[in-house]
Design a protein around this nucleic acid. Structure first.
Length: 265
DNA sequence: ATGCCTAATTTAATTAGA
């Protein structure tokens, strides 16, 4: 089973590229971020025509996440628990049936947090990460396969960016950000890409500006975190770098996990 | 050097991304 996460940077601006990607890459489940659309505006018909179920959690203008799946979800939960006053659409969970039980897949769009000295934005990021920690704790207690997939806006280690000095004071790389990400991993979650490769200059985002793509000035910020029950099923990962070379690309590319989950019979 | 590009909202500048 192929499970993907992709920050698409605007689903309406990217619908042609999205459909081409679904046809060529053919993920069983795709977690999208930054759909930048309300639920009613999401181009679901084109995606359903390719055989996918579509579940969205959108908002006007910014943010927004979605789950596309070849198998129909049994349950969908929208929004990250822990703060009823948070109106930003950054989290959706789907519960699927596989051969031996359930599979939980979450599409998350963790706040950017820049500028890092902003009185609101960086604290919001850290608070969101604390809420994600609580959520992960509660789900791990279920001892089920769980995949937390998304744009974490976290550069985990210095070699996950082209120049650590450039990112030293950035909200994606500050010590508190990296510590919060390690706290998640220390719950027992496995980061799928580093569990399967030590490839260097292995990035998932390249800025549109300053020729970042041409110079391979990338960062790795899109991740799959796996519960032990999901990590046991992990076979390999891919970062579909070629997608960044499309005519009208997102600034992120899909990150893929291959698992040996079997479909429910 | 907080810009260099891009999308969305709205129709000409902003805001946000990272």
């Amino acid at each position: 089973m192929k499970i993907a996460t992709w920050n698409i940077n605007g689903v309406k601006a990217r619908i042609s590229e999205l459909c081409q990607w679904l046809e060529s890459s053919s993920p069983d489940i795709a977690c999208l971020q930054e759909i930048k659309s309300v639920d009613e505006g999401f181009p679901r018909a084109e995606i359903e025509a390719l055989g996918y179920h579509v579940e969205t959690h959108g908002q006007k203008g910014f943010n927004g996440v979605a789950l596309l799946s070849k198998i129909k979800p049994d349950e969908i939960n929208r929004g990250l628990p822990g703060d009823d006053s948070d109106e930003q659409a950054r989290f959706i969970e789907g519960v699927f049936s596989v051969k031996d039980g359930v599979l939980r897949v979450c599409s998350l769009y963790l706040p950017n947090g820049n500028p890092s000295d902003d009185p609101v934005k960086y604290p919001y990021k850290l608070a969101w990460m604390a809420r994600l920690q609580k959520f992960a704790e509660s789900r791990l207690a279920l001892e089920e396969p769980l995949i937390l997939a998304g744009d974490y806006n976290v550069i985990p280690e210095p070699h996950d960016c082209y120049d650590p000095a450039v990112w030293a004071t950035d909200a994606l790389f500050l010590p508190k950000t990296r510590a919060a990400f390690r706290n998640l991993e220390n719950l027992g979650l496995t980061e799928a890409v580093r569990a399967t490769t030590d490839a260097q200059k292995h990035y998932s985002f390249w800025d549109y500006q300053a020729g970042a793509w041409q110079k391979n000035n990338g960062i790795r910020i899109d991740h799959l975190l796996l519960s032990p029950e999901a990590a046991d099923k992990l076979i390999s990962t891919d970062i579909e770098k070629h997608v960044r070379g499309a005519e009208k690309p997102s600034d992120h590319v899909p990150v893929i996990g291959h698992f040996n989950f079997s479909l429910a019979s």
